[in-house]
């Protein structure tokens, strides 16, 4: 009984190892994601790409992203201008399918330094990742 449990645990551990190795491989930037940027957190690493590639001032843009790490239940995106202490006037909608997602409805309405904020939640916990963009 104990041996069977141990064997079960060993199989599960090996399976987890294969999965994590797989996710590490999968965390490389995808080939068609030229210009994608990476944010590495403690639990999740994110590759993200804006459309258009150069974030415009005062025009809507979307963000495609790919998560590496444990499964995520929810991803929210936002923007923050630390020098001015204000965020966006829009709440982006996020469509998440597995580890990939698209956020639409972002708009940075001023030139200057912005933070793109991703808030990820899942069984592994919550994490807030931040990328910086300076808009001229």
């Amino acid at each position: 009984m104990i041996r069977r449990r141990l064997r079960g645990s060993a199989v599960a551990a090996a399976f987890a190892l294969v999965l994590s190795a797989g996710s590490a491989t999968a965390c490389e930037r995808l080939q068609d994601w030229a210009g994608a940027r990476k944010i590495a957190g403690k639990t999740w690493t994110v590759w993200w790409l804006s459309e258009p590639a150069a974030i415009p001032v005062g025009a809507h843009f979307s963000v495609r992203f790919r998560l590496c790490g444990p499964p995520a239940r929810q991803v929210r995106l936002g923007g923050w201008m630390p020098d001015h202490r204000h965020g966006m006037n829009y709440r982006p909608g996020v469509a998440l399918a597995g580890r990939r997602g698209v956020a639409e409805g972002l708009l940075f309405h001023m030139p200057g330094r912005w933070q793109l904020i991703l808030e990820i939640a899942g069984a592994a916990g919550r994490e807030k990742l931040t990328a910086e963009a300076v808009l001229e």
């Binding site: 966006m88 006037n89 829009y90 709440r91 982006p92 909608g93 639409e104 409805g105 708009l107």
Partner: peptide
């Protein structure tokens, strides 16, 4: 309609 769908109402 992207702007209309995503506009945020805030006290500010």
């Amino acid at each position: 309609a992207v702007k209309t769908r995503h506009v945020r109402l805030a006290h500010s």
